[in-house]
Amino acid sequence: KFGRVHERAEGPAKILAIGTATPFHWVDQSSYPDYYFRVTNSDHLVDLKEKFRRICNRTMISKRHMFLTEEILQKNPNLCSHNEPSFDVRQDILVSEIPKLGKEAVLMAIDEWAQPKSKITHLVFCTRSGVDMPGADYQLIKLLGLSPSVQRVMMYQQGCFAGGTMLRLAKDLAENNKGARVLVVCAESSAIGFRGPSEDHPDNLIAQALFGDGAAALIIGSDPKMGLERPIFEIVTTAQTFVPNGDCHLALHLREMGLTFHCTKDVPPTIAKNVESCLIKAFEPLGISDWNSIFWILHPGGNAIVDQVESTLGLEPNKLQATRNILREYGNLSSACVLFILDEIRKKSGREGLKTSGDGLDLGVLLSFGPGLTIETVVLR
Rank of each mutant, 00 (worst) to 15 (best):
K1V: 13
K1E: 14
G3R: 10
H6R: 08
E7F: 02
E7C: 09
E7Q: 10
R8H: 02
A9L: 04
A9V: 09
G11M: 11
P12H: 07
P12E: 07
L16W: 03
I18F: 07
G19Q: 11
T20Y: 12
A21I: 01
T22R: 10
T22S: 03
F24G: 10
H25R: 12
H25E: 07
H25T: 11
W26I: 10
V27I: 10
V27M: 00
V27E: 12
Q29M: 03
Q29F: 15
S30N: 04
S31G: 11
Y32K: 11
Y32S: 04
D34N: 06
F37S: 12
R38W: 04
T40C: 03
S42T: 02
S42L: 09
S42A: 09
D43T: 03
H44G: 08
V46F: 05
V46S: 03
D47H: 14
L48Y: 00
L48V: 10
L48P: 09
K49G: 03
K49W: 03
K51G: 01
R54Q: 14
N57Y: 09
R58M: 08
T59M: 00
T59H: 00
M60I: 08
I61N: 10
S62R: 09
M66E: 01
M66I: 03
F67W: 13
T69I: 06
T69L: 01
E70W: 09
E71Q: 03
E71Y: 01
E71R: 08
L73G: 10
L73Y: 04
Q74V: 01
N76L: 07
N76I: 05
P77R: 05
N78Y: 03
N78G: 11
L79M: 04
L79G: 14
L79W: 05
H82R: 10
H82L: 06
N83I: 12
N83Q: 11
P85R: 06
F87C: 12
F87L: 12
Q91M: 05
Q91S: 15
D92R: 09
I93E: 14
I93D: 14
I93R: 12
K100T: 08
L101N: 07
K103C: 04
A105R: 07
V106P: 01
V106E: 06
L107P: 10
L107F: 13
M108G: 02
I110R: 05
I110T: 05
I110V: 06
I110K: 08
I110Q: 09
D111M: 05
D111A: 12
D111H: 14
E112A: 06
E112G: 06
W113G: 01
W113T: 11
A114M: 06
Q115D: 01
Q115N: 08
Q115E: 04
P116E: 12
P116G: 05
K117G: 02
K117S: 12
K117R: 10
H122T: 07
L123G: 04
L123D: 04
F125Q: 00
F125R: 08
F125N: 04
C126S: 04
M133L: 13
D137A: 13
D137H: 12
Q139R: 09
L140P: 01
L140Q: 02
L140E: 05
L143Q: 13
L146G: 03
S147K: 03
P148A: 12
L228N: 08
R230M: 10
F233K: 03
F233N: 02
I235C: 02
I235M: 04
V236H: 08
Q240F: 02
T241C: 09
T241N: 14
F242P: 15
F242S: 15
V243F: 09
D247E: 08
D247P: 08
D247K: 15
C248S: 15
C248Y: 11
H249L: 13
H249T: 14
L252E: 15
H253A: 13
H253K: 11
L254P: 13
G258S: 05
L259Q: 14
L259T: 02
T260G: 12
T260R: 11
T260A: 14
C263A: 14
C263V: 10
C263F: 08
T264C: 09
K265N: 08
K265Q: 10
K265P: 12
K265C: 02
D266F: 11
D266N: 06
D266G: 09
V267W: 12
V267P: 10
P268M: 01
P269W: 11
P269V: 02
T270M: 08
I271V: 04
A272R: 10
A272E: 06
A272P: 09
K273M: 01
K273I: 04
K273G: 11
N274P: 02
V275G: 13
E276Y: 01
C278Q: 13
L279N: 12
I280P: 07
I280M: 09
A282H: 14
E284D: 07
P285M: 05
P285V: 05
L286S: 02
L286D: 06
L286F: 11
G287K: 03
G287I: 00
G287P: 01
I288Y: 01
I294L: 10
I297T: 05
I297G: 06
H299W: 09
H299R: 10
H299E: 13
P300N: 07
G301S: 15
G301T: 04
N303L: 13
N303E: 13
A304M: 00
I305G: 06
V306Q: 13
Q308I: 06
V309A: 03
E310T: 03
S311I: 02
T312G: 12
T312I: 12
T312S: 09
L313H: 00
L313K: 04
G314D: 09
G314C: 09
G314Y: 12
L315T: 02
K319C: 02
A322K: 02
R324W: 03
R324F: 00
N325V: 08
N325G: 10
I326T: 11
I326C: 00
I326K: 07
L327C: 11
R328M: 02
E329P: 11
G331V: 03
N332W: 00
S335E: 04
C337T: 13
C337W: 11
V338G: 13
V338E: 13
V338C: 10
F340V: 06
F340R: 07
I341Y: 00
I341L: 07
L342M: 09
D343L: 00
D343R: 02
E344Q: 02
R346I: 12
K347T: 03
G350R: 15
R351H: 00
G353I: 00
L354H: 15
T356Y: 03
T356H: 01
T356R: 03
T356C: 07
S357Y: 05
G358N: 02
G358R: 02
G358F: 08
G358D: 11
G364R: 01
L366F: 07
L367H: 15
L367F: 09
S368N: 12
S368C: 05
S368G: 14
F369L: 14
G370Q: 14
G370S: 13
P371T: 09
P371H: 12
T374A: 13
I375F: 13
I375Y: 14
T377P: 15
T377N: 06
V378Q: 15
V378P: 15
